[in-house]
């Protein structure tokens, strides 16, 4: 084999990551993470100190996460604020919103402003709660985020009757001030991953969790909506940061596109210090 691989191309972003692992002029923001044990999988590294150690060795500047035990259990968001306080350099949080607990939603959102800068936005997981994102149970949180221009990371999945493409388009049009991060980019519904960006008022970003590594997928998203609308995420502790970064670097897109995805778009949204 005589050809030079993209990893070995001198001066490229891929070569910098391949050689050094951490690339100081290309920070990484992971906009979709979790924390804590989960029923479906063995995690060796899911507690805060271990997660942060992984972020450090991979050069990830911030991980924004929602705690598994908030989403799937009985833990309250205020405990997650404490976790962020313990790791102020790396951890930020989404306030988990469970539509089956309306009182908690009101209590937690009443404290949202005092939870900044740890709290960056809200997290919706409609597929798992089996409550459509357009349902009245979520209107209070959507109104709250819309009034303040707060991001909501939504779990989204192609074909879902709770957070699939048509519903996400509807809700993103109805709440134009909410910054919608479409977690998993409405996976496998490439029509709607395009339409939620092109048919809304500039308030939608596609988030990549579970996609880096899929052959040709990032290329398709960049072609459809442009790299300025794509955010990096890994579901950490589900997926290795270097695997995800490697998936972005492997895509046949420009180095500018890769930088947009790994950090520039986030810095345009939230600034360099947050």
């Amino acid at each position: 084999m005589t050809t030079t691989s993209f990893w070995e191309e001198k001066g490229s972003l891929a070569n910098a990551f391949w050689t050094n692992g951490i690339v100081p002029d290309c920070p990484v923001y992971d906009m979709h993470g979790h924390m804590g044990a989960h029923n479906a999988i063995y995690f060796k590294r899911c507690e805060p100190a271990d997660v942060v150690a992984h972020l450090k060795r991979c050069g990830v500047k911030h991980l924004v996460f929602s705690h598994h035990h908030v989403l799937f259990g009985n833990m309250r968001n205020e405990k997650v604020v404490d976790i962020c306080r313990a790791f102020p350099e790396h951890l930020r949080m989404y306030v988990g919103i469970n539509p089956h607990y309306p009182d908690r939603i009101r209590e937690d959102l009443a404290r949202f402003e005092q939870w900044r800068p740890w709290a960056v936005g809200l997290k919706f997981l409609c597929d798992y709660y089996q409550v459509p994102v357009t349902a009245p149970e979520l209107a209070y949180a959507l109104d709250f985020a819309n009034e303040r221009g707060i991001p909501i990371l939504n779990h989204t999945w192609g074909g879902s009757k709770y957070d699939g493409g048509p519903l996400m388009l509807e809700v993103a049009q109805k709440y134009p001030n909410v910054k919608f991060f479409m977690g998993h980019s409405i996976y496998r519904d490439t029509e709607y991953s395009r339409r939620v960006v092109t048919e809304t008022a500039g308030n939608v970003w596609l988030e990549l969790t579970a996609i880096p590594g899929d052959y040709g997928y990032i290329e398709r998203l960049v072609k459809d909506v442009g790299s300025e609308r794509i955010l990096f995420g890994t579901d950490m502790p589900w997926f290795d940061e270097f695997q995800g970064i490697g998936g972005v670097l492997s895509a046949e897109i420009t180095d500018d596109d890769k930088r947009n995805i790994l950090y520039r778009n986030v810095e345009r949204l939230l600034g360099k210090e947050w």
């Binding site: 692992g21 590594g213 052959y215 995800g244 670097l249 492997s250």
Partner: peptide, 18 residues
């Protein structure tokens, strides 16, 4: 895992596996 997956993602994961 090609063609479901691309070749590169796991190469970086392995290279920096520690």
């Amino acid at each position: 895992g090609f063609p479901v997956f691309n070749h590169g993602n796991q190469m970086l994961q392995l290279k920096h596996s520690g």
